[in-house]
Write a protein that binds this DNA or RNA. Structure first.
Lengths: 138, 138
DNA sequence: AAGGTATATGCAAATGCTTCTCAATCTTGA
DNA sequence: TCAAGATTGAGAAGCATTTGCATATACCTT
């Protein structure tokens, strides 16, 4: 796989996938998003650039991009997936229980411990999910 | 809250909730389960003890027990929640990607790190979710 | 032990999110 | 420019879960 997302359009082509107006609109939305939008949000935003985008295409494209490693799917609260581009460094999430805000963080030490624990249990980690749910310290 | 699950029936009463045949059947299933059954599995098993249990009651009871802290809800793969009694020590999960088996583990060091990270970000952790997905080391 | 009342249940319909079906429309390599 | 095949929009279909409502039941009070 190429460097995920340096040039999504180019990557698409490289994977033998067609570059369509809708896909470009969706990729654009993801690039602009600083939050972790839901499929519905992505649909709304993509339609600002291209009103023809349909719900089905958003889901199909997100699934495609996820499989390609370009997009990450998060299931924070169990009521709808939230997406983000996989172009930055790997990170985990801290969800603010009061505001719903999502803070990203990265801890090599935790990653290290995870690997050790898995090894002790006889496993190799393929991926992991770490989510902290909390409230701002008073 | 009383010691969750030492005596679920007693706890139910204490919370002003009625002790019904169905609820006892569902609690029994959860106590016997060594896996992390889905709602559907719980329904099937509960019906062995009480054929009258309905799907709706399983969901309603699980929601109630979760709110009471008696039951933990897990969303490992995004296709259906899996439940377990909250009577044992807190633990996280390692999911075997090949077999779907769920291994439980507990690491005070990771918990410690999580708290530290949250503190650095200005948060107090209310709860967290850590799931490792991997395969057996050859 | 019996009764009354609010809670709990079963059934089926309704949700919410996501995926699929299919004819019509594009993208792309030649 | 064209043909072949991928992609799309619209709506139907799927799944897990929730809800509405009439009936049944637990349990507090006689």
């Amino acid at each position: 796989m190429t460097d995920a997302n340096a040039h999504p359009e180019t990557d698409l082509r490289a994977d033998g996938v067609r570059v369509t107006r809708q896909r470009l609109a969706i990729l654009h939305v993801l690039r602009e998003a600083s939050d972790h939008p839901r499929a519905e949000d992505i649909l709304t935003r993509a339609r600002q650039q291209d009103p023809s985008v349909s719900q089905a295409t958003v889901y199909r494209t997100l699934a495609m991009l996820e499989k390609a490693g370009t997009v990450l799917r998060n299931e924070f609260d169990g009521s709808g997936a939230r997406f983000e581009l996989a172009d930055r460094q790997h990170h985990d999430h801290l969800i603010d229980l009061d505001t719903g805000a999502v803070v990203e963080f990265h801890s090599p030490r935790i990653e290290q411990l995870q690997a050790e624990i898995a090894a002790e249990l006889g496993y190799d980690i393929a991926w992991h999910r770490l989510e902290l749910y909390g409230r701002k310290t008073p």
